[in-house]
Design a protein around this nucleic acid. Structure first.
Ligand code: SF4
Ligand code: SF4
Lengths: 136, 136
DNA sequence: AATTAATACCACCTTTAAGTAGTAATTAAA
DNA sequence: TTTAATTACTACTTAAAGGTGGTATTAATT
């Protein structure tokens, strides 16, 4: 019942970049500040670049910045990259394909938290959540 | 954002045993009915026996039955076996040790679904949920 | 032009979850 | 007492996530 490390890291990275609001932040700084293993972090950054959430500048004095406005990047966009988002049909017991008539033992109780999680992921954007964070 | 296969299987197994309410059900029957790989299922059953949720009878005509009343077995008890329960300090972004003053970017939105999930796991018992299930 | 500091890429290693195989122990039935 | 049907135990294999290492590429500085 948790997000993958990649997703957790990615959200923290992007939140931090949003808060800093500098022209460019490099991987070493991110790795140090957020305590994420450098090599793993660069792997994640490459994924964020490929997903068009971040743009990179190579070479000396290079680094990363957001590619869109922070308000346009939703948590869901981040989770999608690592296949870690809460899908409409997200299933708690792994039987799948159920509805209100054909349902598993936990269906009823699962619907409410599931919807809240979907809502949180789909409606939260980086600008909004980065304002709330008091630590990254 | 999902339970482990072991937890999913275990909940389905125990729900099915509760619904059947037979004196003994054997692993082959469970495996067939619930479409769970036989060898993996027997491994899970051993864990359930060791956790005292189920008792077994070995040898010919043997099988499994609940060791306590269904109403006394909570979903949380099952998840605990596979270390898959929602702990009080369960953390979404992996920073840990936060409160309302020192919190991550998603803390506020995470509290509500987290509490609902805790509630679901801690307050649901096998008797109640097995009545709701229309499929296992 | 050479050096340095950065990202990109590719291949590998490690750990954990998921699943499989074989055999021993147990018990009822034949 | 033998056989068949069952759970228990131990060890292995596979797949996926998490993480590391080395080198190529890029670009500003010297
Ligand atoms: S009812 Fe249960 S098994 Fe069916 S899709 Fe929903 S969570 Fe999964
Ligand atoms: S505030 Fe965020 S990082 Fe801190 S414990 Fe809660 S979920 Fe984890």
């Amino acid at each position: 019942m948790k997000l993958s490390n990649s997703s957790q890291y990615a959200i923290r990275i992007l939140t931090y970049i949003t808060i800093q609001n500098e022209s460019l932040i490099n991987a070493f700084k991110l790795s140090q500040t957020l305590q994420i293993p450098y090599k793993f972090l660069t792997k994640i950054m490459t994924a964020l670049v490929k997903a068009d959430l971040v743009e990179s500048t190579r070479g000396r004095e290079g680094g990363f910045r957001l590619k869109k406005e922070a308000s346009k990047i939703k948590v869901d966009d981040i989770l999608n990259i690592f296949n870690d988002n809460m899908k409409k049909e997200e299933c708690l017991l792994g039987i799948g394909q159920c509805d209100t008539h054909c349902k598993c033992a936990l269906h009823d109780q699962w619907m409410e938290p599931k919807l809240l999680l979907q809502k949180m992921f789909r409606e939260s954007n980086l600008e909004a959540i980065s304002k709330k964070a008091t630590k990254v």
